[in-house]
Design a protein around this nucleic acid. Sequence first.
DNA 1: CTGAAAGCGCTTACAG
DNA 2: CTGAAAGCGCTTACAG
Lengths: 354, 354
Amino acid sequence: MSKNIITNDFTNDFTNYITKGGKTLVTIKEVAKRAGVSASTVSRALSGKIPVNEETKKKVMEAVEELNYQPNILAQGLKDGKSKTLGLIIPNIRDLVFPAAIRGIEDTANKYGYTVVLCNTDEDVEREQFYIDSLRRRLIDGFIFSTARPGHEHLLKLKNEGFPMVFLIRRISGNVDAVTADNINGAYEATKYLLSRGLKNIALITGSSDILLYQERFEGYKKALKEANIPLNHDIILHDVYGWEDGYKSMMTLLGKGLKPDAVFATSDPKAIGVIRAIKDYGLSVPEDISVIGFDDLDMVALLDPPLTTVSQPFYEMGVAACKRLIKLIEAKNKPNPIIKTLPCKLKIRSSVR
Amino acid sequence: MSKNIITNDFTNDFTNYITKGGKTLVTIKEVAKRAGVSASTVSRALSGKIPVNEETKKKVMEAVEELNYQPNILAQGLKDGKSKTLGLIIPNIRDLVFPAAIRGIEDTANKYGYTVVLCNTDEDVEREQFYIDSLRRRLIDGFIFSTARPGHEHLLKLKNEGFPMVFLIRRISGNVDAVTADNINGAYEATKYLLSRGLKNIALITGSSDILLYQERFEGYKKALKEANIPLNHDIILHDVYGWEDGYKSMMTLLGKGLKPDAVFATSDPKAIGVIRAIKDYGLSVPEDISVIGFDDLDMVALLDPPLTTVSQPFYEMGVAACKRLIKLIEAKNKPNPIIKTLPCKLKIRSSVR
DNA sequence: CTGAAAGCGCTTACAG
DNA sequence: CTGAAAGCGCTTACAG
């Protein structure tokens, strides 16, 4: 009987169910009709924020169930300018530090009913600005940026306009929330480990010194050496090295100059991979002749030959933390003060250090 | 003078510019007011599809320029149920085959004014269904799936409901567009290359045989052996191997049984990496004792020791092709028939084959 | 060519 | 507690 009614309803309203190029989406009106109440009441019963008669609510819920109604998020958002969407801006997804972090962000976002849009800037500010503008047109609720660099005032400007945002991995100073790894300590531990293995002549192959995280890793390195009373040897400290190819070249240069260190601290795994290749190509071996330690713990470095000893960054957890924080900023009544969250790194001992 | 007027306008309308939690977005009404026309006219001038007086259009464009007006995409979409958003459903972004493909998709989507939402299913059908539902609530315009497996009827159902969608990398039979690599030929070329190096006893370490692409790679392998008049040796053909750990175990098993092949064709790079590790751990060397060839050409395999000879899949281009196709499906007046696009692979000769 | 009105699907003051 | 109305920002028949 009740089944019959349903069938009839469907037949009568059939046109309502086939709309918009074949895509079907039940509307609140249909639910209202079936439950015998107004759309307002359906909305209220669903939101739970406004009191609704228990009886009525039950009827509504049944109708919702039967029709499998799910509110149109875009329509919901139009009213208060929300989209339940987060923008994630990174330099390049092919950089292996990002996949794990992205996973952390998405898993978290989805748990709270948010969706995330990924944008690759290739470190190009214009491209970044284009993405920001186009996401704003979609009423984006907030941003996670992994692209911060000194001079990126446009990001701080965005923050000043009142946009919820958090920096992830990379950050610049400003009134902005951030989640990063504890780079100083990570580098400090790495260097101390090298020292503890009797390695004293430790080269540093590191990245662009205007990026904060590389400054911090340098700091950790210096701190450990200082504690061991080993003076800095600037001949074997190479800055502005980016990626494995650069790592390869830098190590070759070092070796070519006759500067053979006991160990190399490469401040990213790709650099370390390049360094190891160079050492091998030079006819030396790792770790017998030169020990190498990296930073990141990318998914594949345990598979290298030798398996890479490195400083593990909690990328997934950093993604989770950044996303949680962003959602809190979005949903908070009164904006909390920015906090910088620093997650601990962990030394992963494998076989590239003697 | 004119500058003054602007300032006044801004002062008067100030509340209009600070709304929705600090986010500012100029509306069509404000543009209309400034241009001295109706909102309809602004809309028409911008769309370009409906004739507007040149004079009027110019005034509108000026106002648009001055206020830096950009239409609210959500509001635009509400009318016709479009969101200018694409859903990309993959098993796991940490699987290295995806980053390059994702890049291809995003670059293309952005070029056409679309935004892409990434979802990781971990091969879990329920999770996938959850994502599909939640994207439908956001009026998603179409889907790219890299999760297809036999039995995934829910995907075909979606297609039947009229949703634009395309399969990428993986596909199942059904009335659905797809972009894949030419797996048969890729595997055929790989095997032929091994043969051409005088390697005859070729083991195959491959994936789940219910996934089409592994069936195809198996086919390519068989074809090459057949042409060389070499009978299949099922003792050295291992199916259902997933990832590098499994690859490692499989190779160990083979070796442990005293089955030492001349060469191994591993049908994915991770498997090849595991295989190489196993060979080394067994005290043998690559390629001197056993040659190894992979499939994928992931970003890092050139850095392995030895650099991996493998079949390169055009992931970026596949992403581009899938996205272009999807957008065509979305924007086409009358739905074109499904096509399966197969992009050629390319043998990348490095040093893991003798 | 152009404006006023209606409508997309929802939510929320406003009455009752 | 509940319904009718207004409104979010846009687009598009409908009149003129």
